[in-house]
Amino acid sequence: MDDIVQAALKKWPNVPHCYGWLALDARGDWYMRDERIQRAGPFPRVKGSRIDHDKLLGFIARNYDVDERGAWFFQNGPQRVYVELELTPWVWRLQPGGGVTSHTGRSVQVESAWLDEAGHLYLLTDLGFGLVHTQDMALAAEAVEAGRWMPQDCIAAKLPSLHGYQRRPHP
């Protein structure tokens, strides 16, 4: 977590948490969801405004964390902004040669692979559980065919409880 965020938490320890204003889609993109967007419908049916600003994306990535309930959040100074997840808290990008990184740019080591009833591929890593980005399925198929990953069957609806995360955090 950024030093400036740590200092803000000490200076203003009782700022209320924020829900419904930030979301992460299945492609690793962040979305702002103002009051008008929230009234228009739930995420991901109504996504909101995609965040494209590089410095803001970097700030979110450095301050993205999970609480004891399995609810993921972005610590924005003294305010904790909880994140709605389309599918998982992490979206994995695969690199030629076998490397795997998170949507926040962190390198990870794969522990196991999972395949749901819709054909989505998930990886459990040393950082946590997440979805393989759809654009990287050719590289994922190579890893499976080479025997590096042996996907286990799973049911998508059971993944949040199995891996300890909340898709729709609430107070």
Rank of each mutant, 00 (worst) to 15 (best):
M1I: 08
I4L: 13
V5Q: 08
V5P: 08
A7D: 05
A8P: 03
L9H: 00
L9M: 09
K11L: 14
W12N: 14
W12V: 01
P13W: 09
H17D: 15
H17C: 15
H17Q: 07
C18A: 13
C18T: 05
C18G: 08
C18I: 13
Y19F: 13
A23V: 05
A23E: 07
L24C: 09
L24W: 07
D25H: 12
G28T: 10
G28E: 06
Y31K: 03
E35A: 12
E35F: 00
E35M: 02
E35N: 11
R36W: 01
Q38T: 10
A40N: 05
A40H: 04
P44T: 08
R45E: 12
K47S: 12
S49Q: 13
I51Y: 04
D52L: 14
D52K: 15
D54C: 02
D54E: 11
L56I: 15
L56E: 06
L57F: 02
F59A: 15
I60T: 06
I60Y: 07
A61Q: 03
N63G: 13
Y64I: 05
V66W: 00
V66G: 09
D67W: 00
E68D: 07
R69E: 08
R69H: 12
A71K: 07
A71G: 15
W72E: 07
W72D: 00
W72K: 08
F74M: 14
Q75C: 09
Q75Y: 01
N76D: 13
G77A: 06
Q79A: 02
R80M: 05
R80L: 03
V81M: 10
V81Q: 14
V83I: 15
V83E: 11
E86M: 09
E86P: 11
L87F: 02
T88C: 08
P89D: 13
W90V: 00
V91Y: 02
W92G: 10
Q95N: 15
Q95Y: 04
P96G: 02
P96K: 01
G98I: 00
G98L: 01
V100Q: 10
T104K: 13
T104L: 05
R106C: 05
S107F: 09
V108E: 01
V108G: 05
V110W: 02
E111T: 10
L115E: 06
L115P: 00
D116A: 06
D116H: 03
E117N: 11
A118T: 12
G119R: 10
G119Q: 08
G119D: 05
L121N: 05
L123S: 13
L123I: 07
D126H: 10
G128F: 04
F129D: 02
G130F: 11
G130T: 04
V132M: 03
T134P: 02
Q135C: 14
D136R: 09
D136H: 14
A138Y: 02
L139K: 13
A140Y: 09
A141W: 10
V144D: 09
E145N: 13
G147S: 01
R148E: 12
M150F: 03
M150L: 14
M150N: 10
P151M: 12
P151N: 11
Q152V: 08
Q152G: 07
D153E: 12
C154K: 04
A157P: 09
K158D: 15
K158F: 03
K158Q: 14
S161N: 10
H163G: 09
H163W: 06
Q166H: 05
R168I: 04
H170V: 10
H170P: 00
H170M: 13
H170I: 08
